[in-house]
Design a protein around this nucleic acid. Sequence first.
DNA 1: CTTTCAGCCTGACGGC
DNA 2: TGCCGTCAGGCTGAAA
Length: 268
Amino acid sequence: MPELPEVETICRTVAPYLVGRRIEEVQVHDKRLRRPVDPEFHEKLTGRRVLAARRRGKYLVFELDGEGAWAVHLGMSGRLIVGRPPQAARHVHVEIRLDDGGSLYFQDPRRFGACFLFHEDQDLGNLGIEPLADDFDEAALWVLRTAHKRLMIKTLLMDQRFVVGVGNIYANEALHIAGVRPTRRCARLRRREATRIVAAVKLVLQRAIALGGSSLLDYRDANGQPGGFQRTLRVYGRGGEACEVCGSEIRARTVGGRGTFWCSGCQS
DNA sequence: CTTTCAGCCTGACGGC
DNA sequence: TGCCGTCAGGCTGAAA
């Protein structure tokens, strides 16, 4: 499930293959993504040169010569694969050939992803603060919590309009590190806790990027998960187990339709 | 305006 | 072995 660290890692690993290259050929095999692929996508992309690769929230953005940029969202199950076609060639929806003979494949079994051309970043939607940027600090989180006092803190962290890139897994993990229950209403947050949450979000994302860097490019892993990351999970998916920090039981419930986990001992 | 929630989709997994 | 039901999750758009 690509969240910020996975998208960041993919961005870094794909960039050397794409940046500077001209797109020679585009084949769209299946337009039926979450956001249907523009019928003219292949015409509009063919012949363009990729000038840069960057990430905005969970979007990969490839700057192109001429007007506009190309965005890829991986949804739940999307992958970008460079080099050879994926071993299981099913669900490869977009295939791109570059001027150096290289290829890029967009594969997405669940088709929750997106692949489109756009002009301004705001066309990507109303996206919030980048959590790893300096402007995501205690003061920024405090402003958000004050504007949305009734929301649960986990819901706030996961809402892309407020903070981008933090998905379900990292929201759960960050709040465990911060010692704050996911169900806590923003109104009842203390300033000190906001500080801890900011630090925990940054920590968990940076740690995941560090772990994700090695195993993403070849995608041998059946799930495309960054190697080693799952072993570091402290609460996610561990409902009923004992917390490794304090031994208390890890609780589980649904918050906003998402699996939510916290330690009954070290999160208050 | 804000907040909630069903629905999109396939693969994995458990039960029988 | 295989069939069936359930669940997972990011995001959208409609409803409350």
